[in-house]
Design a protein around this nucleic acid. Structure first.
Length: 587
RNA sequence: CGGGGUGUAGCGCAGCUUGGUUAGCGCGUUUGACUGGGGGUCAAAAGGUCGGCGGUUCGAAUCCGCCCACCCCGACCA
């Protein structure tokens, strides 16, 4: 039981000017967080209580999977990254500090390296596996653009877990732990009282559905997620498959709509501008993106052709063509003969070593406009058969394939006839089958089945501070936060109307003691403030239950009981001897 | 990293274009009075390196230069 006057809850009428998202505004106004620098926040007492409750739920669920908690250093000698090269891959995202001797340390953005190092040095035999270890700790990432308060910080609290195995399948294998983590994560967010969606994410090196993201559903979320309402399939944009799409009139089969006509289109940077200029809607234009194949292969370039109003999905391009690819560097692409910005599918004939991937939505007949393969020009009345010709039928050069991001209304990949729907989400958890990336790089091997074999790893993260903010994004109204009981800083707020009247104070004390006895966390607002101020603050900080102690209700032998989430409801008088049970059952 | 913007009291802002008394306003804070169930009223008061450094000028919050910090859009985001 705590008293408002004895803790620190600096509520404000106005939010800092830089706060825009609901969680940032409300957590700031309600006295949970203060900004100390870009992407760096103080966690005040209320925030810390919520964070501890979230952490506690996480710990219980992690422990239930058999994982053991430990705590690794924040400062990691840069030499630790020698094997994995992540100091380079992470680039500027990695915070670095230099000590008095000039030695550089990274502030851990995540802890694959130290955990792998630890296990390598302390586990000698495969018989000691499987093993899962986790920590709840402050992480550092020098984000290019911190934003939205706690949602994207440079210093944040994260639970990260790592598991070690010799096999993928079977008892003690990676999959077994992965599935246990999946269930644990579902339990965590369920217990936190959050509405969330689990989505398939970018596949890991082992393939299959090797990665899942746990997304809190919130309109203000940064990530788009797609769901099939029939099968329950859900995925993020990077990953989402699209069901079978019919090509109207057959692939590459339509007859020309007119003579190929060149149009001069100078100084028009994007599809939209070109379309307007030519009086063609973007959905009748072909967008041809040039990718370069990384490494040595007979195929040097990959073209991805999608509709002007669609986006190419690089991951899909990679998996369809079977090569590692990257967006072609402009200089090299030009040197090879691509008129970057004005490339058409005809480039498959004019440049050697090209594989062209055509999205089903553009393979049909009808009118098409596209680039003219020379600067500042586009063409109208493009026709596949006439303008590309025989390579269309040859899968060595042209493939019909899903290479774009999924959109609302696309066919579901899991249920015939169903259509994908979109929603917004905030990523709060991510589980990932790492495979042997780190054990290979850092030489974590065990003698197993008469061979030295790399240990197979999984990693599992929960953004603890982000989860708190995500909850506010999902649960608030114009007056303030509305906490799910499980992660509210307090369960009950007792508002004293007359903190200077002994009988009121005494009643509050008795009720608080009884509630504490029943396991509820209680905050007594004992400030000498006007009722209006106290009620406004009560709504703002979002404690689930408010008990108001004043003359009115006391005269009736009770106190006023009100749930934060029942915005319109008037307080209900509850008899003193029933308050505790009423509060307990309401949570 | 590209584009745009901001920095003046604890918070939110005006003043800057066109340099010139003691730099204002709202909220908050302090004191007093009245009040007392949804941020109350009146009165008095405290609180400022005008982001920093340099320059122009008799004189700079205001004009010029450099730097720093922060925000927004984009790129990026295991």
């Amino acid at each position: 039981m705590h008293r408002w006057s004895q803790t620190l809850i600096p509520t404000t009428r106005e939010a800092p000017a830089d706060a825009e998202s609901p969680s940032h505004i409300l957590l700031s106004r309600a006295g949970y967080i203060r900004k100390l620098g870009s992407g760096i926040y103080d966690y005040l007492p209320l925030a810390w209580r919520s964070l501890r409750k979230i952490s506690q739920i996480v710990r219980e669920e992690m422990d239930a999977t058999g994982a053991a908690e430990l705590c690794l250093p924040v400062m990691l000698p840069i030499e630790l990254y020698a094997g994995t090269k992540r100091d380079v891959d992470y680039g500027d995202l990695l915070f670095k500090v230099t000590d008095r001797k000039g030695a550089v340390a990274a502030l851990g953005p995540t802890h694959e390296e130290p955990i792998t190092e630890l296990v390598r040095g302390s586990i000698n035999s495969y018989k000691q596996l499987p093993l899962s270890l986790y920590q709840v700790q402050t992480k550092f990432r020098d984000e290019a653009r911190p934003r939205s308060g706690l949602l994207r910080c440079r210093e944040f609290i994260m639970k990260d877990a790592y598991s070690f195995h010799m096999e993928v399948e079977g008892a003690g294998g990676l999959n077994e732990t992965y599935d246990a983590m999946y269930r644990a994560y579902s339990n965590v967010f369920k217990r936190c009282g959050l509405d969330f969606t689990v989505v398939e994410a970018e596949a890991g090196p082992i393939g299959g559905s090797a990665s899942h993201e746990f997304m809190v559903n919130a309109a203000s979320g940064e990530d788009t997620i797609l769901k099939c309402p029939v099968s329950g399939y859900a995925a993020n944009v990077e990953k989402c498959e699209i069901g079978v799409r019919e090509v109207s009139g057959g692939a590459f089969d339509g007859s020309p709509t007119g003579e190929l006509a060149e149009v001069h289109t100078p100084n028009l940077p994007g599809i939209d501008e070109v379309g307007k200029f030519m009086k063609v809607k973007p959905d009748r234009m072909l967008k041809t993106i040039v990718f370069r194949v990384v490494g040595d292969a007979p195929t040097k370039w990959v073209l991805a052709v999608v509709r002007g109003d669609h986006d190419v999905n690089e991951g899909k391009v990679k998996s369809v063509c079977g090569h590692q690819v990257e967006l072609a560097p402009e200089k090299e692409a030009r040197a090879a003969g691509f008129a970057i910005g004005y490339v058409s599918p005809r480039a498959v004939n004019s440049v050697p070593g090209v594989l062209m991937l055509v999205d089903p939505d553009v393979a049909g007949g009808g009118f098409w406009a596209t680039g003219a393969d020379k600067p500042d020009h586009h063409v109208k009345h493009f026709n596949w058969k006439r303008d590309v010709g025989e390579k269309l039928g040859d899968p060595r050069y042209v493939k019909l394939a899903d290479v774009r991001n999924a959109l609302a209304g696309d066919p579901s990949p899991r249920a015939a006839g169903a259509r994908l729907e979109t929603g917004r989400g905030i990523e709060v958890g991510h589980i990932f089958k790492l495979g042997t990336k780190y054990s290979d790089a850092m030489d974590l091997k065990m003698l197993y089945k008469e061979q030295q074999r790399s240990v197979i790893m999984g990693c599992y993260g929960i953004g603890v501070s982000r989860t708190m903010a995500a909850s506010v994004e999902q649960n608030h109204d114009e007056n303030g936060i509305i906490w799910p009981a499980a992660i509210a800083p307090y369960h009950v707020l007792i508002t004293l109307m007359k903190p200077d009247q002994a009988s009121h104070v005494e009643a509050a004390g008795r009720i608080a003691a009884s509630l504490s006895e029943a396991g509820l966390d209680v905050l007594i607002d004992d400030r000498d403030e006007r009722p209006g101020v106290k009620f406004k603050d009560a709504d703002l900080i979002g404690v689930p239950i408010r008990l108001t102690i004043g003359d009115k209700a006391l005269a009736e032998g009770g106190v006023e009981f009100k749930l934060r989430r029942d915005v319109a409801a008037k307080g209900e008088v509850v008899r003193l001897d029933q308050v505790t049970s009423r509060c307990s059952s309401a949570l």
